[in-house]
Nucleic acid binder design. Structure first.
Lengths: 220, 220
DNA sequence: AGCGTTAACTGAACATTGATAAGTTATCGG
DNA sequence: CCGATAACTTATCAATGTTCAGTTAACGCT
């Protein structure tokens, strides 16, 4: 039961309607990616789904990497939205940090493939690997900075937390990095090693959040 | 400055000396892998280094995956040895856990490429992905169980720790998983995102160890 | 010394991959 | 209706992992 879906040729786009095709390609790539994973998301198969020839893809994306980058940013928007939601609805800085952790883990576990693409892949070309944690100084209008944006929010929460009088055991950015590393370790473990007999998932999530909150807050 | 090293043809092996060639292949693959990374470690290039034809490789390895698996196990032996060293020289269970963490991080940071191959790669075929954390019930004589063996040692340390009277906040295996996830998050962050402006590396390592030790030990 | 078996190995080829070059077609403004 | 050009295709490239069919050389045996 693999790749039987060849789509009928799509009509040529009207002049000036190229961006439409671009989005069709993105959608097809995303579908394929979610259905069959990265390895099956080939240029030819994407083109096939859209109903155009393979080289036509290169009219809209410089190369496969650029296509995947665009996909990543699209998905990251979801996580950014989730964090914005927290900022809108939660006032307490400590609670914001906890909610951030929960949202991050939930995002990773419900979008495992994108998570792999953005945060885990050591095999994919350099530029894609960087997407997750490109330096915060990079041009934020360019594709591939979603991860850094999210991370900056976490650090901002920690700065608030410190400003509100809570003592931290490390500088806010170090705290943020430690928390992210723990959350990332958790998510990537579940994603990369699903066959491992992990103990209760909810316990692990709760435990990881507890450990890190307890670890960064100074308690005399 | 890339791939100029083509090696002269090696003489045919005597009858019964095939295993020698097998090890030559492994060595060449390892060198190439360390020098140029996974993407450059192709069947043809490996064969080229050894001085044989590409198909000759398939006399000694079922496929590329099997070759890489063998490489992984070879490298894992180093980590296993480091852990055994701890068992030999350190008696205190708590200290054993701390030393395990240090050794694990040191291993990851000094063997980043192997670490990527074994623990990080979401793109490489399934069997290689599993290497790091194959279920402990798997046949331990088969290749690819190095990761699980190491992890079992950590859990054993935690069981000792509990037996010695120290109260834990979670069951030993859950504690082990949490610790491993944190350590792994740390190592993989450094490896996958070297360009990110992390705060002081030593502080992060020390912090991660502290956080997790504090987190799993019950302190009333 | 010669012969047959077979381990060790090679050359050519296949299907896929991402990517490019060069040419074609259809749309649209004037 | 015509010329410019956006949109697209066909043919092709080099590289990848892998297989097939054959070849060569080492060894035991008579």
């Amino acid at each position: 039961m693999t790749g039987f879906s060849t789509v009928l040729p799509a009509g040529r786009k009207r002049r000036g309607e190229g961006h439409t095709r671009r989005e069709e390609i993105l959608q097809a790539a995303k579908d394929l990616f979610l259905e069959q994973g990265y390895d099956s998301t080939t240029i030819r198969r994407i083109a096939d789904r859209v109903g155009i020839s393979a080289p036509a893809l290169y009219l809209y994306f410089r190369d496969k990497e650029a296509l995947m980058l665009a996909l990543c940013d699209q998905t990251f928007a979801h996580l950014i939205e989730a964090v914005a939601e927290i900022e809108r609805t939660v006032a307490d800085p400590l609670e914001r940090v906890r909610r951030f952790g929960e949202a991050y883990v939930r995002f990773g576990l419900t979008h495992p493939d994108e998570y792999r693409l953005v945060f885990l892949n050591a095999n994919i070309p350099e530029a894609i690997r960087k997407v997750g944690h490109r330096a915060a100084t990079d041009d934020p209008t360019k594709p591939g900075v979603g991860g850094a944006l999210v991370f900056k929010r976490l650090v901002a929460f920690l700065v608030e937390l410190e400003a509100s009088g809570t003592k931290l055991n490390y500088p806010p950015d170090t705290c943020g990095e430690l928390c992210w590393m723990g959350l990332h370790g958790l998510v990537s473990a579940f994603i990369l090693k699903p066959e491992f007999p992990w103990s209760d998932r909810e316990l692990l999530i709760k435990g990881m959040l507890e450990i890190h909150l307890k670890g960064i807050l100074r308690t005399p």
